[in-house]
Amino acid sequence: MSEQLNFEVPTMAELLAKGEEPEILFWVGCAGSYDERAQKTTRDICKILHHVGMKYAVLGTEESCTGDPAKRAGNEFLFQMQAMTNIEVLNAYNIKKIVTGCPHCFNTIKNEYPGLGGTYEVIHHTQLIQDLINDGKLKAEGGESFKGRKITYHDPCYLGRGNDVYEAPRKALEALDAQLVEMKRCKSNGLCCGAGGAQMFKEPEKGNKDINIERIEEALETQPQVIAASCPFCMTMLRDGVKLKDQDKNVQVLDIAEITARANGL
């Protein structure tokens, strides 16, 4: 498979054994670790980190769920058990800066861990990409051209409204010279994909429509070639929606990290 990595992904344990510290910890998240589609995004984030020569590491098998779905579902015990265990690991490795592949992990570690003893600089991978572009370390060249292609971006709730990150993902897309088209409900008025608040793990309540269908209809109205996502849960919901609308041949759903990696031929 072309997505296979031609380099080793360093773990914190390995770095510690060598007496080294990374510049940034890549928090992969459960979806990024286990979900087949999200794994691609995870590998692409690693490719970007590797490409720019940033010293990074992952926790590997020492990572565990942040506790986000437990907290949103109302199980504060389980959340805090997870949080404190993770904080112990992170603090033991003296972690200062974290990049996450998922807005839910991002929100939880950034906002809810400090009160439990875990204070880190936390950024989402779209912010990392924006920073790298701003610093001139990452360009959109040497790979697939997105020039003039119609891309619409779906704001994940926990990145957008939850933490007011609206610009970073758009900046990353602007670097592609693509044609960015906004949906009617975007940014602070963005419509949820339907997966948040632990909905990902249950059947929806009775209604007249699934939320991801409502969203995908709106996305398709912009007649995009690519629907850009930046959350593994949104990715699942949007892809399901595109398939149900029989549009999976015409419209790709891609994470911003994937788009960036492709544009750079990584």
């Binding site: 992904v9 992969v28 459960c30 670790s33 286990y34 990572e63 506790g67 779905p69 997870q82 990902m200």
Partner: peptide, 20 residues
């Protein structure tokens, strides 16, 4: 699942780095 294997799905923690 979170309680038993540290992920909302039923996967083994030992497989967490398999993507790499």
């Amino acid at each position: 699942n979170i309680e038993n294997n540290g992920a909302p799905w039923k996967y083994s923690p030992a497989d967490r780095l398999n993507w790499a």
